[in-house]
Design a protein around this nucleic acid. Structure first.
Lengths: 224, 224
DNA sequence: AGCGAACTTAACAAGGTCGTCAATTCCCGG
DNA sequence: CCGGGAATTGACGACCTTGTTAAGTTCGCT
């Protein structure tokens, strides 16, 4: 909408902080995360982001260089966040089965608690990874968690807990698929029998269910 | 005011269409499916749809009543398609384990072969089911497949093939989650180790994998 | 204090989108 | 042949979007 805000010079704006370079940047980025996650790339409006931050569209273009670079910064930000959260996982000292269970539960909870992240990932996939291709940093985000899984699986195989042909990437994919579906498809799927999903659903039960599915599958005996 | 799909009131052999009303309607709808699936609701352009059909935007608004009603018609169309395809599944005469395997394989293949459907479902979920709520027909689309699953699972439980607490909705959710993930997340996930997914991935291997996961989970012994 | 640079604001221009309306063509039945 | 209504066209108006630019403000440093 046409911003027809007329304010006398020296009134309310005078009380504003003199300078806030990095703080403003961070605030804009946070608002952009919310807006892009909520409305997608096309649906998101620079004015809406500006409105969330008490700044103007021109200022956003001053800090970032436009809509697309801002969106890329958003993607890199949320991916960096989950990577850091994953790094806090300490599973090397757990027995393989418990380690897998912890990884599954962490991943499941992270998706439930960070719906913005999930929505951004989905949006980027809907865009066929168009923007992601331009960021080299986003190419290897999944590697740490897969390597962690690989070490745990190898330990489990050495003990005979897991089947010999278990593949870390397949396992990660199954975990992510089952964990994300609750969040991503909660509207079309939840309409079925009014069964709530996502954060409002039966989180505890479903989290245990996903862990059971993965562990049953990883078990030593191949499919009969 | 017959705004909805109202055909000729009586079936008369002599009655003929003045021009090409239904043919154009169908062509517009098909183009709209492709455009909405490709670019999402906001990203889709009515002019682009018109361009795909050698017609004009005004004509689309003549047949349908605007962008949103058209989008709803698209949703109802693709959901009707999958429901009809599912109805062709004949699993009542199969043994429970084989029946589950067939259902999984059908669902998996349908997603791979109908990426448009999957993308539309994802888009609608990203929109928080905004448009879907207005269509009463879309409220019960998942019911047939879940009921089919319920009958198969009940048979399997009676034989002792499946665990007693298996829930059809949970099973359907797991199948859908694993099947959709390949298609929906192929870009962000496929970038990992350049492992192709979706229709270009190792379809046969992954399809069998999903069936194994489901059947292992359904197996009679609970998680040990 | 004064200067340069960072920061902020308001306004503009170009482009794109959608829905509608009056006018026109086309076909069919009388 | 001709009226009438369905089908189709072109054009208009209102709205929203983004990026830029020129002017103003504030700050840090010398």
């Amino acid at each position: 909408m046409a911003t027809s805000v007329q304010l006398s010079p020296g009134r309310s704006t005078a009380m504003r902080k003199p300078k806030a370079p990095e703080a403003n940047r961070a605030r804009i980025l946070a608002a952009a995360v919310a807006e892009f996650a909520s409305r997608g790339y096309d649906g998101a409006s620079m004015d809406a982001i500006a409105a969330r931050t008490n700044t103007t569209r021109a200022m956003i273009n001053y800090y970032f260089r436009g809509k697309e670079p801002l969106y890329l910064a958003v993607l890199e930000r949320v991916y960096a966040d989950i990577r850091e959260a994953e790094s806090g996982l300490d599973v090397e000292n757990l027995e393989p089965v418990e380690a897998i269970r912890r990884i599954v539960e962490f991943t499941y909870d992270y998706y439930v608690d960070h719906e913005d992240f999930v929505r951004l990932v989905v949006a980027e996939n809907q865009a066929k990874g168009r923007h992601m291709k331009r960021s080299h940093a986003l190419r290897t985000v999944n590697r740490p968690i897969v390597e962690m899984l690989g070490r745990v699986i190898a330990r489990g195989q050495a003990r005979g807990d897991f089947r010999a042909d278990a593949d870390p990437i397949d396992v990660h994919m199954a975990i992510a698929a089952l964990g994300m579906f609750n969040v991503t498809n909660q509207y079309t799927f939840g309409s079925l029998f009014q069964r709530p999903m996502g954060a409002k659903g039966d989180v505890d039960r479903r989290r245990a269910m996903v862990a059971d599915i993965i562990l049953q599958w990883l078990g030593p005996q191949p499919a009969g």
